[in-house]
Design a protein around this nucleic acid. Structure first.
Lengths: 173, 173
DNA sequence: AGCAATAATTGTTGACGTCAATAGTTGTTG
DNA sequence: CAACAACTATTGACGTCAACAATTATTGCT
């Protein structure tokens, strides 16, 4: 369980007036001296970690992890995918896909079928149980995201989502 | 090869008339059927991963990692911090702080000093070399973030940053 | 003095990313 | 058509990282 460490620290002002804030021979105006949260990349890193944690705790009851969930979601939208395809699209190593699909097969949420044209490939398809699982857990998954984005109203969430999407399209498949 | 599941933005109808659109026994309008990138939480997770990777590759020349850099940055703004403080503020486990400070001490970027009031605690302070390191690598660090946020203009980056900051303040220290 | 709480530390475990290597299969090319 | 290069899935090894449990030294409480 993650504690919320609000108690051990006084609240720091938003620094709209930053005249007298320099506390102790530290010049906070130097660019290399800016705080951690001043960097968007680091913010993304931290929030991404937290988002993954939330998702995993939400999934822990089902015995799956975020990676499995990502595979299921992708399969739900593609109706059968080669493992190679899962690898490139989800950004996971091919060797990781093996174990993930193994787990999903064990749970009965997906299965491998031989590809008709290429005996090297296997086609991973979502089973009916997999569809049911997605249907059942969908609402809970949305709750996780809603919990994370709690301080944002609907409009802000929309803009955040489009901004993130623009970044994602230019770097992830 | 199976049909590549075209990125969802090409031939998805506005769905005003959703009578006959069901292409292949898949109803893409079902909420649990939405694509991976439709969920902001998952987007955050993926982009956070990517951001961390970029930062780490940028830091690999110096022998440090993102976590070390985070500690250095925090120390630069706080002029001495208990390890316990680093743990709660950076979100790392206390056991992780040990190794991080060890590494920073080996590189000469930080050092532990005994706390005058509590012999259990150690105060970690940034050395002059640590300050120099931050000064030297600051520009490169900014380039990493700029590279990540390439598809966004200045105004969009600003809004993204404030949005992320609002989320971060309500969940991270 | 006795005892709970705390700071730093060690060790362990499981998840994760990366890379190398292999078997089976396909496509190409000389 | 035979040799060879490329590709798919798979296995294994290695190092990193996060989450816990346990330990030691110290402090605060009563």
């Amino acid at each position: 369980m993650l504690e919320s460490p609000n108690t051990d620290r006084e609240h720091r002002e938003p620094a709209i007036t930053r005249q007298h804030v320099t506390p102790n021979a530290i010049d906070a105006d130097e660019p290399w001296m800016r705080g951690l949260h001043a960097d968007t990349g680091y913010l993304l890193y931290r929030l991404g970690l937290r988002s993954g944690q939330l998702f995993n705790t939400f999934l822990q009851a089902s015995g799956l992890r975020l990676r499995h969930y990502a595979v299921l979601r992708f399969l739900a939208g593609s109706e059968g995918a080669l493992q190679r395809e899962l690898s490139t699209r989800l950004g996971y190593d091919p060797s990781a896909i093996v174990g993930l699909v193994d787990d999903l097969e064990k749970q009965g949420f997906a299965e491998r079928r031989p590809s008709p044209d290429d005996r090297r490939s296997r086609i991973v398809v979502l089973t009916e149980d997999g569809r049911a699982f997605l249907r059942d857990t969908d609402e809970a998954g949305l709750r996780v995201t809603n919990d994370l984005l709690d301080p944002l109203d609907a409009a802000d969430r929309q803009t955040l989502h489009t901004l993130l999407l623009r970044i994602a399209e230019d770097g992830l498949g």
